[in-house]
């Protein structure tokens, strides 16, 4: 374990996981916002919106994340010139967030949509009967109940997102998997300990995260 007694190596390790944390947070916010919007589109009475939502889910849920992240770099940035920052790390970070968000949003959308199916039809009827518009019914009655019903599956999606964030390493960000590769390259005699520390860090953070979502799901469950 001499590897991690070197402050420079610890720095590499910490920076790696800091990027993962930032990617998860930014990607999670993006995916949640986009996913809810997509779910709203998929249940809306407007055919064009429904088709857009369906197409989004079909495209991004069935494409490897690696390809999407590659496209963000080589397509959006290199070819189309979409740039988020002059700082190369920050630019790669936001390209990664974009890819993670559009990909994860497809899963969030489907989770929310299954949540909508758990809300009895009478709830929407009662809302319409007091004069609520489609939007009011959706945002005040349906989505709050649907969201509470899918907290546990959303937790799984966020956990997957956190691990998927390592793929942003493929476009050069020094996130944890790149950090691990760098440490292994420099310390060939300590491959297994390095690997265990990185894998263990994920597990130690994510196992309680899963339980926290389970606890939250129980606490916020709508009693019927």
């Amino acid at each position: 374990m001499d590897v991690f007694s070197d402050p420079l190596n610890r720095e590499v390790y910490l920076t790696g996981f800091l990027w993962i944390l930032k990617l998860t947070l930014a990607g999670g916010v993006g995916a949640l916002v986009l996913g809810v919007l997509l779910a709203a589109m998929r249940v809306s009475p407007v055919p064009v919106l429904r088709a857009f939502g369906t197409a989004w889910v079909n495209i991004f849920r069935n494409t490897p994340l690696t390809l999407i992240i590659f496209f963000c770099y080589f397509g959006l940035f290199s070819t189309l010139g979409v740039s988020f920052s002059d700082d190369i790390d920050l630019n790669n970070f936001w390209l990664g967030v974009t890819g993670l968000s559009v990909y994860t949003a497809a899963f969030v959308c489907e989770a929310i949509r299954s949540g909508i199916n758990t809300v009895p039809a009478g709830q929407a009827e009662a809302a319409r009967a007091i004069g609520m518009t489609f939007r009011q019914t959706l945002t005040m009655i349906i989505l709050p109940q649907a969201g509470r019903a899918v907290i546990a599956p959303l937790g799984s999606i966020i956990i997957a997102l956190c691990k998927n964030a390592t793929i942003v390493g493929t476009i050069g960000l020094m996130e944890s998997s790149n950090a691990m590769k760098e440490l292994i390259n420099a310390n060939g005699d300590a491959v297994v300990p390095i690997f265990l520390v990185f894998a263990g860090t994920f597990a130690i953070v994510l196992i309680p995260t899963g339980y926290a979502f389970g606890w939250l799901a129980n606490r916020l469950a709508v009693k019927r």
Binding site: G122, A126, A129, I141, Q145, K223
Partner: peptide, 12 residues
Amino acid sequence: GMVFQSFNLFAH
């Protein structure tokens, strides 16, 4: 005003 067989109060 409408009153339903299954009440349909907003559960949340």
